[in-house]
Each structure stands twice: as structure tokens, then as C-alpha cells.
Design a protein around this nucleic acid. Sequence first.
DNA 1: TACGAGTGTTAGATATTCTAACTCAAATAT
DNA 2: ATATTTGAGTTAGAATATCTAACACTCGTA
Lengths: 226, 226
Amino acid sequence: MNEAPRSPRERFREQTRNEAKRVALEQLAESGPSGISVNAIAKRMGVTGPALYRYFEGRDALLTELVTDGYRDLAEALEAAAHAHRRKAPATRFREVALRFRAWALEQPHRYLLLFGTPVPGYRAPELTFELADRSMRTILEAVVALAPADLPSGRAAPDRELVAWRERRGEPPAPPAVLRRAVLAWTRLHGLVSLEVAGQFGGMGVSPEPLYRSEIENLLHQPWE
Amino acid sequence: MNEAPRSPRERFREQTRNEAKRVALEQLAESGPSGISVNAIAKRMGVTGPALYRYFEGRDALLTELVTDGYRDLAEALEAAAHAHRRKAPATRFREVALRFRAWALEQPHRYLLLFGTPVPGYRAPELTFELADRSMRTILEAVVALAPADLPSGRAAPDRELVAWRERRGEPPAPPAVLRRAVLAWTRLHGLVSLEVAGQFGGMGVSPEPLYRSEIENLLHQPWE
DNA sequence: TACGAGTGTTAGATATTCTAACTCAAATAT
DNA sequence: ATATTTGAGTTAGAATATCTAACACTCGTA
């Protein structure tokens, strides 16, 4: 997105940083989060350990950057799916977004776990986590908004008020609370299935997760609007 | 459960092991999975580092033991909830088991994340993971079985066959595939909500997760049996 | 009471993160 | 074109981690 960095030095710097992150993701895939080692990354890049400290404050900063990159990547994948089907029926669009979500997770399970699994380093701020997840959440929300009929009533229960307030805080057009609640449920249900699948919990059960996932999508599409 | 260890030495050994695991869980709560250090545990126990290697093969073995303990603990909590309400209506029993599930996770979020988050050490075998999660799964399954009407048909779709086969493999009384599917969905939906809550993803949203969780329980109870 | 199994210690090999001090090349400025 | 400065990479080293090996001691056991 950003145009070419001005100086050759900045370009080189950017290139080295990306290379380091690329190698870090390799390490992540091979040996898990705790296998990401500044030293090993440097060695694999053909430089000594301390050299990398010119580019990252330390191991945790590098990890954090992988996390933020991951959230951005996921959000972009979902947005692309939504955009690709923007002319289709809302149900179709929702399905495609949901399927893209699972596909993204399965393409790079270690990254998905890095985002939604145990916080790895010292501890990353939960607020940061939320800010980042929010962009994906918004795409799902838009897909759910398009599904809802026009005449949904406004609820008065506690979670409804919270959701409406949250939506207002972001300066987005208001949506009926039932829609917001449905969007959150969509998020948690899809995440529940995907995270257990990625963590290998279905493996021993002999269940193919895909039909389950599809049926859960249909459940969300056909569930009555209270 | 196990009766008193015979020799004083075995008793002492058991005691030391438990103490070590207790301290390890403290470390886990304070500094996350990567903060669990054999050295630090030993220091906190008043001995030197290498002493602990008499009791655990290494750091990974200790970690693995924390994981297996956690799965056992969770399963026992769910079984206790089911047992406490064994005379109540099936819907009540299911509700209580589901609520206990969330309560267990909230009481010790770091442990829940240790079980269902990113695999931490080298890599624990997924089969092991499944074996252990199975016991909790079974309790949920029993609760769902009790909910189902008696005249459910047997499906012929692929996931149904898999689920039935899985159930048979464990030598348990057969259950209609719709029931098994519902049980898996219960598991994934509850886990989806709880894991996002425990990971702090709802924090910034200002949503109280409890009403959402309860509504999801009711959704499971009232969803038609296809 | 003598033995031996088991517990804990120190020393050390290896690997990690990260800082400090230094060199050197290359981009920038004059 | 030359001088200056910026910054990349190096080695050295402090602090801490896992884990092994060799040794000492102690307390159950025979």
C-alpha cells in the first residue's frame, strides 16, 4: 500500500525486516511460538544475532509485529471475500466470508493459533488485541447486517445496550441489537469450530470438520430473528 | 483417588512433585506459559535448579503434566456438575454443565489457555490431546443425549457415519447421529465463547459475555432436531 | 547397624536474549 | 569529488535458561 520508501537505506531496512519476519514465520511453523529465536533467525539470514536488534527492539517486539501482521492479513482476506461477492445475495456473501475465515486459518494454522491461542511473550495488551480483531469483526458484522430484515425491533436488555453503545462509539451507522448480537455469535461459533479444528481436537474423533462448519453457517443463516 | 503411597520416600516424592506443579501454575498465572522455568520453580521451592530433574524429565515433561492435570480437572468439574443435577430435568442439567464449563475457565484462565490455546513446548501429540479432551466431551455428550427425543432418525450423511463410528469405537451405547452432531456443536459453541472471553477479546467491546453465553445455551436447548 | 537408594549440591556445556563498544561501508551533504 | 554522518554488522560479555555429570549426604530399609 505504502509507496516506495524514499531512501535506499529505508528500502533496505524494510526489506531486511520483512525477511526476518518471513524467517520467523518459518520457525513458528516448524517449532511453535517458543521456537522463534532471534539468534536462529539471524543465523538463517546469514548474520549474527545482535545484528537483528537494529531492526527490532527485541524478541517480544518481533512477536507482536507478527501478531499485528496476522490480524491485518486476516482482515484483508475477509474484506476481499466480502468485496468479491458484494453483488451476490447476502446469504451467499455471508457464506463466502465465513468460508474464507476457515480457509485462512487452515492455510496457516500456526498463524491462527498465534492470534487466537495463548498469548505468548510477556503479555500483549488485550486492548491492542481487540483493536486489531475489530477490523475482521466489522466485516462479519456487515455481512450479518445485510442478512437482517428491515423491521427488527430495538431491544432493551443489557447486552443490547452495550452492543449499540459499542457500535455508536465507532461512529458506524446504528444497527438493531439483534443484528449485533447475531454477529458476535457468528464470530464465536465460527471461531469455536475453527480453533478446535486447527488445534487438532477433531483429529482423533474422525470427524470431517468441513460439513460441520457448513451446517453451522446454515444454522446462522436460518436461525429466526427472535 | 489413589490410596496413600506405601513408603515415606514415595510420599515425599509425591509431595515434592505436587509442590513443584503448584509453583509452576503460579508462574503460569504470573508470566504465561513461557514464564514457567525449572530454575525459577526450584528457587521458589528453596532448592537449586538441577534438583528438580530428579522429579521431572525436563521442562517439557512438567508442562505436559500440567496439561494432563488440567484436562482431568476440567473433566471432573463437569462430571461433578452433571452428577449434582442428575435428578433434575435434562435441560437444567445441560445448563449447569455448560455453566460449569465457563466457570472453570474463568476461575483459572491461564489453565484454560494452556489446554486449548497454542501448544506450548516442542509439540504435544494431538492424539494425547484428544484422548484427554474426550472425557469432558463425553460428559457434554451425555447431557445432550438426555435432551433428545426418543424417535430421532439415523442419518446417512458422511459426518453422521463418522460420529457413529467414533461412538462405537469407544464401546458406548449408540446414539442417533443428530445427537452426536449436536453435542459437538455444543462443545464448539461453548468453547468459542469462552475462549474469546478468556483471551480478552470481549474486553474492549464492552459486552458482558455472560448473557451471551446464557443465550447460546438456550439456543442449543431450543434448536429444532432437524 | 550397615547398606544403598534417593536427594541435593556444585561445576560445566550449550543456548538464549540483549547491551556495549568498535569497525567499516555506504548514503548524504557540502 | 570529497568530507561527514548515519547506520549496519561485528565481537565481547553479562545474565539467565535447560540439562548432564560427578560428587556428598541422609535417611529409609534390610
